[in-house]
Amino acid sequence: MQKKISFRLLAFSLLLTAICLLQTGCKFNPDMQTPGESYLQGEWQQDSVTMQKQLVSYSLYNLKFNCDSFFVSIKTFSKANTGADSCTKGGSWTEYAKGVYEQKDDTLHVRGLFCNADYSYKDPTGCFRSGVYEESFKVIKKTDSVVQFNPTSSVISINAHLIKRSTCNPKPL
């Protein structure tokens, strides 16, 4: 009797695994980093924002893409007092995030975590945002060295120019 039950359990688990593998939403994570988008590989910098002198606050982005991974530095400037001066340092501060990205058609989706400048994970009790960083951008490739990122969460475009080109050398995960 016990052999029959364990055979049925084994058959059921094999059937469930087969069904799962046939579904598109069920797949194993790769053991190697994927190559990402070749045109994005490298470091991109935003130098200014349109009408930035008239804005109460704005941010400048520095984006680094390596294979399917990203690292972003967001330097924010604000004329408004938004919190403790130890955090805002007289109206400017920098936040960092790292994670992975993927592009479908003209939309770039980045998802990661806020971190420190040295890529270590950020203490959630510190200044500003912590935890998940997620954003989608409509991407317009202007030239080989100029890309416009249009965030879905803002009306201010990020016009970034290439500082340093790199190539993807996938690493094991």
Results as ranks from 00 to 15, higher is better:
residue 38 S to H: 13
residue 97 A to C: 04
residue 125 T to S: 14
residue 116 N to A: 03
residue 138 K to H: 12
residue 10 L to M: 13
residue 136 S to Q: 07
residue 106 D to Y: 08
residue 9 L to H: 13
residue 147 V to I: 11
residue 153 S to Y: 12
residue 42 G to P: 08
residue 36 G to L: 08
residue 156 I to Y: 13
residue 35 P to R: 09
residue 125 T to C: 11
residue 57 S to Q: 07
residue 124 P to A: 05
residue 89 K to E: 09
residue 44 W to P: 09
residue 108 L to G: 08
residue 115 C to W: 01
residue 132 V to L: 04
residue 57 S to K: 11
residue 110 V to L: 10
residue 89 K to S: 10
residue 169 N to F: 07
residue 129 R to C: 06
residue 6 S to C: 14
residue 89 K to I: 01
residue 74 I to F: 03
residue 98 K to D: 11
residue 171 K to W: 02
residue 161 H to R: 04
residue 41 Q to S: 07
residue 87 C to L: 02
residue 136 S to Y: 03
residue 92 S to H: 06
residue 143 T to A: 02
residue 104 K to V: 11
residue 70 F to W: 01
residue 52 Q to L: 06
residue 79 K to D: 09
residue 38 S to W: 05
residue 112 G to A: 09
residue 141 K to F: 04
residue 145 S to D: 09
residue 43 E to R: 11
residue 153 S to L: 10
residue 85 D to R: 02
residue 106 D to H: 14
residue 57 S to L: 04
residue 52 Q to V: 07
residue 66 N to V: 12
residue 150 N to M: 10
residue 172 P to W: 04
residue 66 N to F: 06
residue 166 S to M: 13
residue 147 V to D: 01
residue 127 C to K: 02
residue 81 N to P: 09
residue 111 R to W: 03
residue 18 A to T: 13
residue 154 S to L: 05
residue 18 A to R: 02
residue 155 V to L: 12
residue 121 Y to P: 10
residue 141 K to E: 08
residue 136 S to F: 00
residue 48 S to A: 15
residue 20 C to V: 10
residue 6 S to E: 11
residue 144 D to H: 12
residue 153 S to I: 15
residue 91 G to A: 03
residue 152 T to I: 15
residue 41 Q to P: 06
residue 35 P to Q: 08
residue 126 G to T: 15
residue 117 A to N: 04
residue 36 G to A: 01
